[in-house]
């Protein structure tokens, strides 16, 4: 089998926090390697540490001990506003609740990250239109998110996550707010984009549809990896 470039390497990652005076050990030592182009799902019941783990590898949350290396760079080496730049340039997010900026149009939402990156206007417009065509929303470019259905909003979120070609796309329960038909269509589209563009997708989910489509399924239970299955 061809050796893939590792995008994420986690070494003995642990996260403990206090909740109302009670110590919660959310992640208890996770060692994982996610390679470029993977379409991987982290699954597990509620409270298994999936979201906390995703937050840690994206730099949204700090770890208590261990090490996370994203595309060769240890996250612990990145401080302050560099972390914002790092997220902006290397990670795309898809959230359960879409989380689009309500006052920006579809086009503006998708181009927002490129604006922060300082991408020239013509280039931004070209890339936004291409990705909107990929997700089937080109004709909705000037609409506000509130004027779109849930499925359409999540497709905008996918476009926003992918438009700047990040190393990794983290999707936290992306189908949880969608009906099964819309969710299924969205996942097919993401899978197609993964295959077409070679982008790395890491899902946190307990949705059977995602598990079915994922090439690798990692099961977290009580903050540790209980199973790691690579489908043939």
């Amino acid at each position: 089998m061809e050796k893939q470039t590792p995008i994420i390497v986690t070494e003995n990652v642990k996260k403990t926090y206090e909740d109302n005076g009670v110590e919660v050990r959310a992640v208890r030592g996770v060692d994982l390697t996610i390679s470029a182009g993977e379409f991987t799902a982290i699954v597990g019941p509620s409270g298994s540490g999936k979201t906390t783990f995703l937050n840690i590898i994206s730099g949204l949350d700090t770890l208590t001990s261990g090490r996370v290396v994203l595309n060769g760079k240890p996250l612990s080496d990145i401080k302050g506003s560099e972390l914002s730049d790092f997220r902006r340039d290397h990670i795309g997010f898809i959230f359960q609740a879409y989380n689009l900026i309500p006052v920006l149009t579809v086009e503006e939402n998708v181009e927002y990250i490129m604006l922060l990156q300082g991408v020239p206007k013509a280039e931004r417009h070209k890339r936004v239109m291409e990705i909107l065509a990929d997700v089937g929303l080109r004709e909705y470019a000037q609409r506000l998110p509130a004027k779109l259905s849930g499925g359409q909003q999540q497709r905008v979120a996918v476009a926003r996550a992918m438009v700047s070609n990040p190393d990794l796309i983290l999707a936290d329960e992306p189908t949880a707010n969608l009906d099964s038909k819309t969710g299924s269509e969205l996942l097919d589209m993401m899978k197609e984009l993964n295959e077409k563009k070679g982008m790395t997708f890491l899902f946190s989910t307990h949705d059977e549809m995602i598990m079915k489509r994922a090439r690798r399924v990692i099961t977290l239970k009580d903050g540790i990896v209980a199973a790691d299955v690579l489908k043939k």
């Binding site: 949204l60 959230f95 990250i113």
Partner: peptide, 16 residues
């Protein structure tokens, strides 16, 4: 707060 959280998550700096 949620909007600011999203903006920060996608790379907006605190100064912005």
């Amino acid at each position: 707060r949620r909007e600011y959280g999203v903006l920060k998550a996608v790379g907006t700096k605190p100064g912005q």
